[in-house]
Design a protein around this nucleic acid. Structure first.
Length: 448
RNA sequence: GUGGUUGUAGCUCAGUUGGUUAGAGCGCCUGAUUGUGGUUCAGGAGGUCGUCGGUUCGAGACCGAUCUUCCACCCCA
């Protein structure tokens, strides 16, 4: 006999966890639909030609690749074995999806003639990364994406901001902050610092400031050739605890007129139309985000009361479908990280009680006659939309009650000879231990 | 991919410089209680000490390999 196991970085979900996960999904889905997003689904496996080269060299390595079917070695030659790089395309042409955005871009390019633009789609599916697992990092995890493509309107940025707040409000999470930045701003800053051509490196360094601190970041920027005085001036801006208006003015003072700055200004102006939404938005010049395809505003949600990486992220990309032969389609998207949101809600104990989801009444019986009678009542309870079940075996009362206790079923309906003859049933409250007699109608009314 | 770390009962963990038959708490099962769970009491089941190999008269402990866990780096939800 072999020991059963699952691959590293993957997990089984028992009923309790699975219920909580679907609780989160249902809230997210509800809000996506409230904002007019429509669902799509794409295959778990994509052609590697679709996936490769979209996430950088690092990303290509983190793709799970699928071996070709059949005798895949037959089609290889001696020279293919000189390196893995040469061999790979000969033995594998499919891979597991790495995120939902690239498959979505592929979907849009392939279905462009059937799509009405602007197209708002949502997609909630697992993705896979051949990463080394850690706390809050898995090899299989869910993303909940909503994207709007085929529109340049700045309203989209605002709409997604409102959506983010609706979702987290619905989930009961108050301690979070939405951080905002703009790729144009970052690129202009990089140029200003004397780093033309090294914008991406600059973004990667600046993004690490939370982890390694301002000094180290300054050091590294200087190392790739930043102007010392200018770098120090910019880094000192990050420290300042001023409001967004001030930050924008300060930055404009340094880099001058800029498309990113004016878009951010407009964004904050629009947000101010909704003063009673209590929007928690913070401009953060050090926010960069990894994915290479963002071109405009980028954002990220971090919980403030729990030590955890970003639980939601997204941004605007101007030309995502271009690589699939459909240029000029601007889009903006957001991705909720289900697994991390779960961990945060769990840590803050924000999930509703189990009783909210599971069976409300267990019917307990003593013999065949009372079981038969109970099965009829059971059907009527369910007809009234009450979550109910009957203990399926003939078993001692102790065992049946124990079952209710273990599954945290709050009420037990006992049916014995007495109940059969009087038509009044004993309804036991498992929490208090108390017991009352009710007619069946009385019970129905109690749970309606 | 690089460096470190962990593994003993279903779970959380003890286990002395290598020495008889590997322990505890919790959980589980049975009974006290044939119409009352959760509390109490009595009893019981459950382990190839991650796996394979080595050292030794003797290995849970020492050595090697491998898998696994967690952590840091890289990167990211």
């Amino acid at each position: 006999m072999q020991k059963p196991s699952i691959p590293k970085g993957t997990r089984d979900f028992g009923p309790e966890v699975a219920l909580k996960r679907s609780f989160i999904i249902s809230k997210i889905k509800k809000n996506f639909e409230k904002y007019g997003f429509l669902p799509i689904e794409t295959p778990s496996i994509e052609n590697l030609s679709v996936l490769m080269g979209k996430y950088g060299d690092e990303g290509d390595q983190l793709l799970f690749k699928i071996l070709n079917s059949g005798d895949f070695l037959k089609k290889t030659t001696e020279t293919d074995y000189t390196s893995s790089r040469n061999l790979l395309p000969k033995i594998s042409e499919k891979g597991l999806r790495y995120d939902l955005t690239v498959p979505f871009a592929r979907f849009v390019a392939m279905n462009q003639h059937n799509i009405t633009f602007p197209f708002k789609r949502y997609q909630i599916q697992p993705v896979w990364r051949a990463d080394r697992p850690q706390r809050g990092r898995y090899r299989e995890f869910y993303q909940c994406d909503a994207d709007i493509v085929g529109t340049n309107s700045n309203w989209n940025e605002v709409e997604l901001t409102l959506l983010i707040h609706d979702v987290f409000n619905d989930l009961g999470l108050e301690g979070f902050i939405l951080k905002i930045n703009h790729r144009e701003v970052l690129f202009s800053v990089a140029k200003y610092l004397g780093l033309a051509g090294k914008e991406v490196s600059f973004c990667m360094i600046i993004d690490k400031i939370d982890k390694i601190g301002a000094e180290k970041v300054t050091e590294e920027i200087l190392l790739i050739g930043g102007n010392k005085a200018k770098v120090q001036a910019f880094i000192s801006l990050l420290d300042e605890d001023t409001d967004s208006q001030q930050k924008l003015l300060q930055l404009e003072g340094i880099i001058g007129e800029n498309k990113g700055v004016s878009e951010l200004k407009l964004y904050f102006e629009t947000l101010s139309r909704f003063p009673d939404r209590n929007l928690q938005v913070e401009l953060d010049w050090s926010l960069a985000r990894g994915l290479t395809y963002y071109t405009g505003m980028i954002y990220e949600v971090k919980p403030t009361s729990v030590q955890m990486g970003s639980i939601t992220g997204g941004g605007r990309y101007d030309n995502l479908t271009g690589m699939f032969g459909l240029p000029g389609v601007s889009g903006i998207g957001i991705s909720f990280g289900l697994d991390r949101i779960y961990d945060v809600l769990e840590e803050l104990k924000l999930f509703p009680e189990m009783e909210h989801f599971n069976t409300q009444i267990l019917i307990v019986h003593f013999d065949q006659a009372t079981f038969d009678h109970g099965s009829i009542l059971l059907d009527q309870l369910r007809a009234a939309s009450i979550r109910a079940e009957i203990y399926p075996d003939q078993a001692k009362l102790k065992k049946q009650l124990n079952y209710a206790d273990k599954l945290r079923i709050p009420f037990v309906l006992l049916i014995g000879d007495e109940e059969l003859s009087t038509g009044e049933y004993a309804l036991k409250d498992m929490k208090s231990g108390g017991q009352e007699r009710h007619t069946f109608d009385g019970i129905l009314r109690k749970f309606k």
